[in-house]
Amino acid sequence: MQNNISHDSKLQIAGAGIIVTGGTTGIGRAIAAVLAKEGANVFLCGTNEEHLRETLQHIEDKQVRGKVKGKTTDLSTEDGIKELFKSADEHLGKLDVLVNNAALAHQDVYDGEYSDWERVIKTNLLSYIACTRYALDRMTPTGRGHIINIGSMSSDVREKGSSIYVATKSGIQGFTETLRKEVNEKGIKVSLVEPGAVMSNMQPDEVEQQQEALARMEMMEAEDIGDAILFALTRPMRCDVAEIKIKPHLQII
C-alpha cells in the first residue's frame, strides 16, 4: 500500500536521481539536458563512446545545475542492464525517475534476419521491462518514484514498412498501461509518452530535410519531448499524467 506522502506533494527535480536510457543522442539527450538544467542528477547510457563524450560535453557546456554522468552499455543483454544500474547506484545514490528511451530503428519482416530482430526486440522492449524491474526494486522501499516509457505514435498509426519497430512500440504501450495498474498502489507513477516525428538520428531523412520539415511545423525538436516529460514529473502526487501524445502541429496522423 501507499505510504503517507501528501496528495499535493511534488517531486523536487533539483537533486532528483534520474536514469535516462538511450541518452546519448536524439530524444534521450534532450531529456537529459532539460532535466539537468532544472537541477536533476542524471545518469545516461548509450552504445557509442564518442556519442557519450559529446553528449556529456554538450550538457556541461550548457552550465546546467545538476550533475550528469554516463556509460556505454548494451541494453540488449542482461549483463549490460546490470552494469547500468550498478554504475547509476554509485553515481546517483538514489533513484527517483527512470526514463526508458533506448531504441533501435527497424523496418519490416523482410529487413534483416533472426539475430537482427532479436537485438531490436531486446533493446526496444525487453530492456524497458528489465530496467523497470531494477528501478522498482529501488523505488518500492521508498514508496515513491516515476517510470517514464518513451513509446511512439507508430503504435497507433502502424504504418506499412515498419512492422518490427511497430511491434516493439505497441508492446511498450501495452506494458505501460498494465504496469501502472500494478505499481500505483505502491506510490509509483507510470507515464507513457508517444511522440510523433522528432528531429533525430532515428529519422531516415537527412538533417537538411528534417530542418525543412521543422520549418513547415511537420516535425518537432527533441527538446519538446523533454519539456513534456518535465511537466509530467512535476505534477502533484494526486495527479498522474498517464499518457502524452505529442505531435508536430502539421503532422496529420
Results as ranks from 00 to 15, higher is better:
161 G>I: 04
31 I>P: 05
41 N>S: 07
164 I>R: 05
174 G>N: 06
244 I>S: 15
45 C>Q: 03
199 M>L: 11
253 I>K: 07
68 V>F: 04
89 D>Y: 01
11 L>A: 01
241 V>E: 08
183 V>H: 03
42 V>S: 00
112 G>A: 05
69 K>F: 13
152 S>N: 04
36 A>T: 06
41 N>L: 07
98 L>K: 06
230 L>E: 07
202 M>H: 13
107 Q>H: 10
9 S>V: 15
227 D>Y: 12
157 V>H: 07
205 D>K: 13
189 K>T: 08
196 G>W: 05
227 D>K: 12
23 G>S: 02
68 V>E: 02
90 E>K: 14
188 I>M: 01
232 A>K: 00
179 L>V: 08
154 S>T: 11
194 E>P: 00
214 L>T: 03
237 M>E: 11
164 I>C: 11
181 K>C: 11
234 T>P: 03
251 Q>Y: 12
188 I>R: 00
239 C>G: 04
44 L>P: 09
249 H>G: 06
89 D>G: 08
245 K>M: 10
143 G>Y: 01
82 K>Y: 07
131 C>T: 05
16 A>T: 03
108 D>G: 12
150 I>E: 03
178 T>C: 13
22 G>F: 01
231 F>I: 11
251 Q>P: 07
22 G>Q: 04
224 D>C: 00
112 G>M: 01
134 Y>N: 11
70 G>C: 11
112 G>R: 01
195 P>F: 04
3 N>R: 10
3 N>Y: 13
113 E>I: 11
156 D>L: 14
182 E>K: 13
22 G>K: 07
7 H>F: 15
245 K>T: 14
123 T>A: 04
250 L>K: 12
161 G>A: 01
31 I>A: 03
62 K>S: 11
73 T>P: 01
252 I>S: 08
122 K>D: 11
83 E>F: 07
73 T>F: 01
139 M>I: 09
57 Q>P: 04
189 K>V: 08
116 D>P: 06
139 M>N: 09
120 V>E: 06
94 K>H: 12
38 E>R: 02
119 R>C: 13
225 I>K: 03
4 N>W: 09
175 F>Q: 09
147 I>C: 08
189 K>L: 14
205 D>R: 12
12 Q>L: 13
2 Q>L: 11
88 A>P: 14
26 G>F: 02
70 G>T: 11
147 I>H: 07
107 Q>K: 14
161 G>D: 04
214 L>A: 03
40 A>E: 06
1 M>D: 11
184 N>R: 14
